[in-house]
Computed example of a mutant assay.
Amino acid sequence: MIPASVVDRSKEFSGKRVLVTGAGKGIGRATALLLAARGASVVALSRSPDDLRSLEREIGCETHAVELADVAAARAAALAAQPIDLLVNNAGIARLQPFLDLDVEAFDETMAVNVRAAMVVGQICARSMIERGTGGAIVNVSSISAQIGFPLHAAYCASKAALDALTRVMAVELGEHGIRVNTVNPTVTLTPMAQKAWGDPGKAAQMLSRIPLNRFVEPGEVAQTIAYLLGAESHMINGVSLAVDGGFLAR
């Protein structure tokens, strides 16, 4: 057997079109870069035209600027991206408020971006895969917040738990069409969004004390896990929420 460390992955996704939402920054951008490096034709969605332009210059990807909280806009962008072989629903927001002060608008916006957009884009991509009879794979980017109650994260935690549940149903219903659906669930990942929640050294130290590996996750490490779940080596993994947490959930 060839050791995994010497396997050439430069053409792993050659001939595949991969749609990545929230591709402008953080995990989404790292995923777009990694998949492009492994031969994929990347279609990138983000609400930031500037981020998309810089990503296009870097990897030559197709881009669509879209506000995914807008259902009609999300559908239009997903339809314009077809045909898609692999999907990464990564777009997400965090509105940090104490539960007693959590306003309905912040809750609804979080659910719209973090869950509903994944459903809308996932429906369109899955229908296309079924019509073409190609099968495929979908990875929804969730969080350990799906299982842990973090202060100020009521809307975010609720959205990620909902995304995990949605993913399991997608896996059950789409599996018969050869479409696998999984989530990747990282702990705090060093992205611009994470800095808002965990930028305070005291708060970060408390979180780090619960991670046996004693560090946060890098976006590239989450991207590698996403690539694994999209690839042929995981062809019997379906409906799984895969933690990338340094052992946080093991305590």
Rank of each mutant, 00 (worst) to 15 (best):
Q147K: 15
A204S: 11
S145G: 12
S41V: 10
K11N: 12
H153E: 14
R215H: 13
L33S: 00
M119P: 00
P83D: 07
D50S: 15
A81N: 10
V240Y: 04
F150R: 01
Q147E: 15
V7W: 06
A40N: 05
V184G: 01
R29C: 05
R47A: 10
I237P: 00
A4Q: 13
V141S: 08
R132G: 07
I2L: 15
L19Y: 04
R168N: 08
D50I: 09
S241E: 13
W198S: 03
S234D: 13
T189C: 05
M170Q: 15
K16N: 07
G199K: 01
P83N: 06
A65S: 14
R168C: 05
G175Y: 05
V115Y: 05
I130H: 02
N140L: 04
A243M: 10
P98R: 06
G247P: 04
T167I: 00
V42F: 02
A204C: 09
G247D: 08
A91H: 03
V6F: 13
R29V: 05
Q206M: 14
L152M: 14
A106N: 15
L166M: 14
L229F: 07
F216Q: 12
K11M: 09
P192D: 09
A162D: 10
N89V: 00
I27Y: 04
Y228G: 02
A112Q: 08
H235R: 15
G133R: 03
Q82G: 07
H153F: 14
A30H: 07
I130Y: 01
A243F: 09
E233Y: 02
M170T: 06
G22R: 02
L152D: 12
G24P: 10
R215K: 14
A30D: 08
G60T: 05
N238Q: 10
